[in-house]
Every structure is written in structure tokens, then in C-alpha cells.
């Protein structure tokens, strides 16, 4: 038998982790159960953070003041996925960068409620600056996935 010039062996790194969310993320997630998208504001620069954050990275201040948004937002950018990625949804799917209300920051979520029958045409159906609103799951657990997706405001 001939000796191969090289061999390959497969291996993996399966490790489990657990993370405490802290007070601000916990409050933000809990509000999703009530179909509410909250934001918090920086006492110094007054920017609104959606999702909420524990601190403002620019002013380096703790964020303790909360605001409730109406949940609607605008699309700042997006991409339509056409190929299958492991552990990711079946294509095509649209990931959007969504600015909720007058937030100084954006959320990442899916854009849905579109006609997916002609995948090639999806990019043309989405406009930068387009207004979107959340579509909520029936059973909510306090997770960004309590929102099924954001759909264009009719």
C-alpha cells in the first residue's frame, strides 16, 4: 500500500457559555414581552440608544434615563442573502439596519412582509429611508426574536 503524502483530520471546538445581561439589557428585553421597544438616553450627548445600552461609549457616562418609542423605524441599509449559510436562515432573507424613532443608533433585524417569489427583485423593493414597523410573535419571551421581522409601513 502506498503511503499518502499528507493526511487531514477533522476536529471541533464545542464549548458552552452563559452570560448575565446586566440591568439595562434585562429591562430592554423584558419590555419586548409587552411589545414595547425601549431606548435609553445619554445624560450628556442626549443620544437615544435602541437597543438600550449600559453606557455611552463616546461620553463615557452611565445610561439611566429611559424612553419608550413607537416601535417604527427607517431602513438605513440592508442586504439580501441568496446563498445558504450554516446555522443561518434559509435564503433569501433580508437583514436590515433599522433606526427606531430618532435613535442615535440602529437595530439589526430582518425585513419581511415582502413578496419573496422573485428573489432577484427584492433589492429594488427596499428603499433606504423606507419606514418599517415590527411584526410581533404571539408568544414572547424577552428576546430580540420576539419580533418576527420589520415590515414596510403601509
Amino acid at each position: 500500500m502506498e503511503t499518502p503524502s499528507f493526511m487531514s483530520k477533522q476536529y471541533n471546538m464545542h464549548l458552552d457559555f452563559s452570560l448575565a445581561l446586566g440591568a439595562s439589557f434585562t429591562k430592554w428585553m423584558q419590555a419586548l414581552k409587552e411589545k414595547k421597544i425601549l431606548g435609553n438616553t445619554c445624560p450628556k450627548c442626549k443620544r437615544v440608544f435602541v437597543p438600550a445600552k449600559p453606557f455611552c461609549e463616546i461620553c463615557f457616562e452611565e445610561l439611566k434615563d429611559w424612553v419608550e418609542t413607537d416601535g417604527t423605524g427607517v431602513v438605513e441599509s440592508f442586504t439580501v442573502t441568496y446563498q445558504k449559510f450554516r446555522n443561518c436562515p434559509e435564503p433569501p432573507y433580508v437583514v436590515g439596519i433599522i433606526r427606531i424613532g430618532n435613535a442615535g443608533t440602529c437595530m439589526t433585524h430582518w425585513i419581511g412582509g415582502l413578496d419573496y417569489k422573485h428573489p432577484d427583485e427584492i433589492p429594488e423593493k427596499i428603499k433606504i429611508g423606507m419606514k418599517v414597523e415590527p411584526v410581533w410573535k404571539e408568544e414572547r419571551v424577552g428576546d430580540p426574536l420576539d419580533i418576527l421581522y420589520f415590515k414596510p409601513v403601509a
Binding site: L19, A20, L21, G22, A23, S24, F25, P54, F55, F60
Partner: peptide, 16 residues
Amino acid sequence: GEARMSSDELVFRAVN
């Protein structure tokens, strides 16, 4: 004891 917040929040508090 156990951490009650995420590592960025912990780091922020110490650095601040």
C-alpha cells in the same frame, strides 16, 4: 461572587 452584568459593562465600570 457571580457576575451580574456583561463583560463590557464590568470593564466600563472599572475604567470609569
